[in-house]
Design a protein around this nucleic acid. Structure first.
Lengths: 156, 156
DNA sequence: CACAATTCAATTGCGCACAACTGAATCGGT
DNA sequence: ACCGATTCAGTTGTGCGCAATTGAATTGTG
């Protein structure tokens, strides 16, 4: 062990602190958004991750689980049960692709598409609750996108 | 500037898109950090949330579950089992306060304090993986802190 | 002092996240 | 045509996150 008692190098301690602040604030912000979404989506009967899935489906209408996972950065272990619940709620259908029996195609039902009308009111509430000007929000999105790309590249 | 227009389907669609990007990128960034931490903390035998708990304990040494929860924005439902696992790993102790028997005091063990040495190497790896200049990271932290405070205030 | 309200940690139940694995379908090389 | 490797979705197991509840300890009020 290369421990020098009280003599911790200051640089390491400083980085430990900054790291603590970054990772904690990111974690906290993500959960804070989740909390606001939870209440905003309660009427729609959706959870926050389910809402993210529906957003993709509202945009694209129909696509296999695989591509859904790539869009949302989620694997089948997360999506399979989540999609089952959306199916049970009558919002999506799941059927195996005729061309490739391994693949499962997810599509919105009429009820799932109708839900979009109710969802249109949600973003304004969220963005209002965030309380940042649009420019700051865009800057935030930019930083987050870059850092995620870097982290994924470093992890791979 | 208030754009509460009479005819706003287009604006709603735009906000839906921005909202989608913000909440998704935040969620994705949080999980991307988690992934990098997962591998970085593997040797220490800690999960990411457990690491956050240890960071607070390394800083303060000893404090009740309640205050730990306030610092980390977590409730007893999350902390109780987490602390039990840290206790089982021999990193912390939990004992009821003599002055107030409702309160449980969490403290690091010698083994828990020793772990800090190994943790000092982690932040550099994470910050390097993030791949952003320190100024950007500080700006990111600033935006996240502000947005979390706003969201919590709006939710309360 | 009595007793209702409050403050704690812990527990239960549900859903998400992810690693590891299973099994079926498909693809590729020979 | 065969067979090993790959690509899918799904399952299992562990841990986090949070709402709701429980039960014990403490505080406040009459």
């Amino acid at each position: 062990m290369t421990w020098h008692g009280e003599d911790t190098p200051r640089k390491d301690a400083d980085l430990l602190l900054l790291d603590q602040q970054i990772c904690f604030s990111l974690n906290a912000a993500s959960r804070a958004f989740g909390g606001v979404y939870r209440t905003a989506l309660k009427d729609l009967g959706l959870t926050y991750p389910q809402y993210l899935v529906m957003l993709v489906l509202w945009e694209d209408g129909t696509l296999p689980v695989k591509q859904l996972g790539e869009r949302l950065r989620l694997d089948s272990g997360t999506l399979s049960p989540l999609l089952k619940r959306l199916e049970a709620a009558g919002l999506v259908t799941r059927e195996r692709s005729p061309e490739d029996e391994r693949s499962v195609i997810v599509a919105t039902t009429p009820a799932g598409r109708e839900l979009r009308e109710g969802a249109l009111a949600v973003p304004r509430r969220i963005l209002a609750a965030a309380g940042l000007p649009l420019d700051d929000l865009r800057a935030l999105r930019e930083l987050l996108t870059r850092v995620t790309a870097n982290l994924d590249a470093a992890g791979a």
